[in-house]
Computed example of a mutant assay.
Amino acid sequence: MAWDDYVAAWSGLHGGFDPRGASPLVRGWVLSAYKIGSFLGRKRISPLTVTLAGLLLCLGVPVVIGLAGPPGGLAAGALLVLLAAVADGLDGAVAVVTGRVTRAGHVYDSVADRLGEAAWLTAFWLAGVPAWLAVSAGAAGWLHEYLRARATTAGMTEIGVVTVGERPTRVAVAVTGLVLAPIAAIIAPAWTVPALTVTVSIWLALQTAGLAQLTVAVHRALR
């Protein structure tokens, strides 16, 4: 599949959002997913296989943190989150490139994303973040995705708005926190939990702001 054909198909699956007009980071990410997805498609690797691989990587994050602890477990967790994020971007690319886009696959991918994020926040809790904060951050992220899904069901045909609380933001916050925390653990072990707590607090703040942005967009689209 040619790049322009891929963009047209990808845009149709993302509310008409054209990545060619996005920031260099987003455009580069979509282009990289297209190239790697094309390679995986030629190797006959299915989109579902990539989705399951990403989910397993996410589930491994609380395991390595629970077993190894800081700083090594946190660093390994950051690597797993990053690899899971790559897999998350590739399953859709493989589906588009191979012509295997299905409604069931979209549902499986969304469920895997929510389970993966729950695993990340569980890892933060195991590392010392207050349970109420981890649960609040997870609930805010879930509500963000639920609102958009329900709005689409109600007739919103476009993405509405790219908020500050989208999935890539959650990935970036999780990776950043899990990278900085082991550094803090080396410099001053007492800083580890505060660093992780600040990370999840930022997650919650961005999700709350994103939810407000999305609520306004949904109201305008459906009124």
Results as ranks from 00 to 15, higher is better:
residue 117 E to T: 09
residue 213 Q to R: 02
residue 193 V to D: 02
residue 168 P to N: 09
residue 126 L to I: 10
residue 190 A to C: 03
residue 178 L to A: 04
residue 177 G to P: 06
residue 55 L to S: 06
residue 18 D to I: 08
residue 86 V to L: 15
residue 34 Y to C: 06
residue 177 G to A: 04
residue 58 C to Y: 15
residue 10 W to E: 12
residue 86 V to Y: 09
residue 159 I to Y: 15
residue 29 W to D: 13
residue 55 L to G: 07
residue 93 A to Y: 09
residue 99 G to V: 07
residue 140 A to Q: 06
residue 175 V to L: 06
residue 79 L to T: 10
residue 197 T to R: 00
residue 7 V to E: 03
residue 52 L to Y: 10
residue 137 A to L: 01
residue 109 D to Y: 03
residue 85 A to M: 13
residue 113 D to F: 01
residue 212 A to Y: 12
residue 4 D to Q: 14
residue 191 W to A: 15
residue 163 T to E: 10
residue 82 L to V: 12
residue 205 A to F: 07
residue 47 P to C: 01
residue 136 S to D: 02
residue 19 P to D: 00
residue 132 W to F: 08
residue 116 G to K: 02
residue 46 S to Q: 14
residue 63 V to D: 04
residue 163 T to Y: 08
residue 119 A to M: 05
residue 9 A to N: 02
residue 60 G to A: 02
residue 196 L to W: 02
residue 4 D to Y: 09
residue 103 R to V: 10
residue 140 A to D: 02
residue 9 A to I: 06
residue 132 W to C: 00
residue 187 I to D: 03
residue 194 P to K: 07
residue 195 A to R: 07
residue 168 P to I: 09
residue 61 V to R: 00
residue 204 L to Q: 05
residue 58 C to G: 12
residue 182 P to Y: 04
residue 77 G to E: 10
residue 205 A to W: 01
residue 153 T to M: 11
residue 78 A to Y: 03
residue 127 A to I: 06
residue 40 L to K: 04
residue 135 V to T: 10
residue 68 A to L: 15
residue 199 T to R: 02
residue 166 E to Q: 15
residue 24 P to W: 01
residue 207 Q to H: 12
residue 194 P to C: 01
residue 65 I to E: 12
residue 201 S to N: 08
